[in-house]
């Protein structure tokens, strides 16, 4: 059974609708990432689950209980805030022990659990310091410990890594994921960084303008994007728009057989699924283009190729042996790599 279930949640601030009909479930011990650009409503959704905002309509259920009727301090949900929100007048120790103290946990037990939590984040030496005396990365870990020490059923994390520099950020992604496995608490993690979402999550829920575009495991969302937006937001892609007529997709000069109904269509073809044509492969969709530029990325190279109808394709090829490419390239992809996607812009 799902731990948290969000049912048809909508939220408006005045006349602005921020969330529209969001339904999703979080399983026990799952790492779910809510991914979206700024303004997509991801933070609002998190704040509704935490209890800082009330949904305009819809319901929240946790463990068979209505969650949205409870004030935030009665929910077994804890939050790691974007800017940590450590209490500046308390020591690190007092910050971590705050929740236990409020809950009336006996002193001896509080002390032990705080010590354990500080040991877990390797901050024992800093226990008596004030938050302003430790670094951003350390504050981030303290915020995490302060939430986890209460053993919540669900931990909400609001872009907790966004304030860290790139190296520390990558390190924290791995640590955080490992920690989540270890404690087995369900995490709902918010980010606008699709790479971070891919690295850490069991599943990704992609929000756009208050709508849930797709919720799926990282591999599935990458390989089977539901919409053109998802395909473009998660990694690079080439979007082909055209029409299906009698089981044949026509996009520009290309065509291949599909099992779709007639009408407008859009396909996502990942750059790495396009290759330089060597010999005429059986059933592959081929096209010709002019090489615009060639960017070296180490293991791979990214080519930009312009076809005769002025559309530009990104093509990812292996990093070696591609020197001295001809000005005009013959390229191809397999029809099964052209993933049909829903496209808001298509008419």
């Amino acid at each position: 059974m799902a731990l948290l279930s969000v049912r048809n949640v909508a939220k408006s601030f005045g006349k602005t609708q921020v969330l529209r009909d969001i339904s999703l479930e979080v399983a026990e011990g799952e790492f779910l990432t809510i991914l979206g650009e700024s303004g997509s409503g991801k933070t609002t959704l998190l704040r509704i689950v935490a209890g800082f905002e009330q949904a305009t309509s819809g319901e929240l259920w946790m463990d068979g209980e209505r969650l949205d009727a409870l004030p935030p301090y009665k929910r077994r949900v804890n939050t790691v805030f974007q800017h940590y929100a450590l209490f500046p007048h308390m020591t690190i120790e007092a910050n971590v022990g705050y929740g236990l103290h409020i809950a009336g946990v006996p002193k001896a037990e509080t002390t032990t659990r705080v010590e354990e939590a500080l040991a877990m984040i390797k901050m024992t030496a800093h226990a008596k310091k004030k938050p302003s005396k430790i670094s951003g990365g350390q504050q981030q870990r303290v915020a995490l410990a302060r939430a986890l020490v209460n053993r919540p059923k669900l931990l909400l994390l609001d872009e907790p890594l966004s304030a860290l520099d790139a190296n520390l950020r990558r390190q924290m992604q791995i640590e955080l994921k490992a920690l989540q496995r270890e404690v087995g608490i369900a995490f709902v993690f918010i980010t606008h960084d699709q790479e971070e979402a891919m690295v850490m999550s069991d599943r990704i829920a992609l929000l756009r303008g208050g709508n849930l575009e797709q919720i799926a495991a990282p591999r599935e969302i990458y390989n089977r994007p539901a919409t053109a937006y998802v395909a473009q937001f998660i990694g690079h892609t080439n979007l082909l728009r055209g029409r299906v007529e009698k089981g044949i997709a026509h996009c520009g000069s290309m065509s291949w057989p599909v099992s779709l109904a007639d009408g407008p269509c859009a396909f996502s073809v990942r750059p790495e699924n396009i290759r330089v044509a060597t010999s005429p492969a059986n059933g592959a969709v081929g096209f010709e283009g002019k090489l615009l530029n060639q960017a070296f990325h180490g293991a791979t190279e990214l080519l930009r190729v312009e076809t005769s109808d002025k559309s530009v394709f990104s093509v990812r090829v292996a990093g070696m042996g591609t020197q001295g490419l001809a000005n005009t390239l013959k390229l191809e992809f397999s029809p099964q790599d052209a993933i049909p996607v829903r496209d808001a812009e298509a008419t």
Binding site: A50, G51, F52, P71, P72, Y73, K74, V77, N78, T79, F81, H83, A85, L86, F87, P88, Y98, G99, I102, A103, R146, A147, N150
Partner: peptide, 15 residues
């Protein structure tokens, strides 16, 4: 006083 401190306190169970 950052309002997130108030939220953090509520979040940690304080009335």
């Amino acid at each position: 006083i950052p309002r997130t401190l108030v939220e953090a306190s509520n979040d940690l169970g304080a009335s």
